[in-house]
Design a protein around this nucleic acid. Sequence first.
RNA 1: GCCUGGGUAGCUCAGUCGGUAGAGCAACGCAUUCGUAAUGCGUAGGUCAGGAGUUCGAAUCUCCUCCCAGGCUCCA
Length: 660
Amino acid sequence: MSDLEVQLPDGSHRSLHAGATANDLAVSIGARLAKDALAAEVNGQLVDLVSALPNGARVAIVTPASEKGREVLRHSTAHVMAQAVTRLWPGAHYAIGPAIRDGFYYDFSLPGGEHFSDDDLARIEAEMRKIVGEDQPFTRSEYSFEEGLELFKDQPFKVEIIQSVKSGASEEDLAELASPSVVSTYSNTPAFRDLCRGPHVPSTARLGFFKLMRVAGAYWRGDEKRPQLQRIYGTAWESKDALEAHLTQLEEAEKRDHRRLGQELDLFSFPSELGPGLAVFHPKGGTMRRVMEEYSRSRHVEEGYDFVNSPHITKSELFETSGHLDWYADGMYPPMELDDGQNYYLKPMNCPFHVLIFKARQRSYRELPIRMFEFGTVYRYEKSGAVHGLTRVRGMTQDDAHIFCTRDQMADELTSLLTFVLDLLRDFGLNDFYLELSTRPEKKAVGTLEEWREAEETLEKVANSAGLELVMDEGGGAFYGPKISVQARDAIGRTHQLSTIQLDFQLPQRFDASFIAPDNARHRPIMIHRALFGSVERFMAILIEHYAGNMPTWMSPEQVRVLGVRDDHDSYAQEVATTLRADGVRVEVELANEPLGARIRRAKLEKIPYIVVVGDDDVAHDTLGVNSRGSNDPERGVTIDDFRERLLKEIAEHSSPEAR
RNA sequence: GCCUGGGUAGCUCAGUCGGUAGAGCAACGCAUUCGUAAUGCGUAGGUCAGGAGUUCGAAUCUCCUCCCAGGCUCCA
């Protein structure tokens, strides 16, 4: 009777009766697994537990505490939410409801153009709990194209999906249907049926550890020109603990939000008088920024860069020549028209200025490569809804440089450049990277095929020799050149796109930039754009979040605070400060007119790396009490020289008190 | 730009049915002189984002504008 055999993930084989389902397999393996099972993976494809197993299949039972299991239960939870919404708003249209990272969403259009409010989330959640309590089965059915259209005739978005799958499916739509020819649906009750490829959990009772997070607007098909739907985001997990852990993690992330820390640590602010995306840096943020910029400058000097400067405003002619006005006018601040009829623009980038510097006189191949660096402040008219803290602003300073070189020099330049980039990022404490290479777009691209191929190969070779993971973004380059970008993972595992290195085959051509080569003829230079921080503001934001505000000592605005135990220790505290200041350490003294505990507390909240406390013993023996950030165990009787040496070493090494 | 929510003291927030503004922290003053995360008392601080409207009366209701948050779109 055992006429069906399947293979389990551990390579073992198992015999089952003909027509056995995934669920039968789970039962045969063990009661516990059968109880846990949510779905199955058959030959790499996720299916319902009730689906019959083909002979010889590789089968894995999917349980809740796995990525695939969570995906299934998140998707099922989205269906439950859709049902809840249709119960509460009869006639609501539902569009798409996939599982996403940490949860799910579903897009709706409510009758009469109604909108969800935040209060509705609680109502919907309550209704969802009822549905979970009702232990409704997820029942799969398959229909023909025509039957599908009939079934969903009251659901215009579903009709559109069915039709578009018929006429050439997108990834997104395929997720909704079994295949172009079969319309699969899942129903929970006679009243609720959804178009879906599946799989789903066996019953709504298997769900329950979810929370609706927020309501948002989202365009149908992600298209700005199409109707805006009401999207509800939720998070869903396999257990109460997992849900709570996720919510706690969100709180932790919020605590290290650079906007919050920027306020708490008095680094910068966004005065509403200035408008969206325009920041001012306070003294402490200004110090942090200065340290970053000074370090970057000194490294660029070592790497053979020349320092240039360019104005913030220019006649329109420059951006007409560069072509930016043709394709980027929307992203620029509108022109200022002056008396003579000239239009002047704020610069949204520095590149054309640097090309003009290159062109200021005739160039010889002997001068190349020329590397021009500028902390260039640019202004971009970001949409008001797009600005975000320091990471997406309307005015920012790029650590921008352009390298003009010959084609022969290109490979060496790219190699040393990538090394430089990674070194610099490591100096700021980021060390978990991967690279992304965006290659030639199919349709339209300037530059010769060989140039592209050579640039791409070089970038790839350099990336590989750096020993880093390389993700290909085929066809993702700009039309004017390939790009490599460095993605960095921060302390809590988020990735940020940081540095970009971009080849440009176009701008030198538009500006007719050239150099005289050994053959005594004019040749076109290759231009490399690159920014290591991206923008100083954004890089600072990423570092603040990476360190949760506990900046390494060299970057801390105040490195040491000296506190006398009583006010008769204040003059010794001042002496200590003066000694350290002579070595360039940023030290402040807070006079003893408040209890020591209160002053220590304040300094701790300000995340100052070292709090130095001096009292009778220290005055008598020329010593210090050192309270390091991150430690609850202050040291007593440290000599000034010892502390000074330690501190200077830590600053030079870009280390932190926590690292000791 | 679009959707939802929000804007009350420097900060975090409370403010009921529309009846004339509150707390904690911070600041300032005085006292306290203290050895590692909050000393006590007191004082001052407000065009309730801005404007218009409804009302005898508006932080509270309506409309407009600005700014913020989370999304969507966008990010050369």
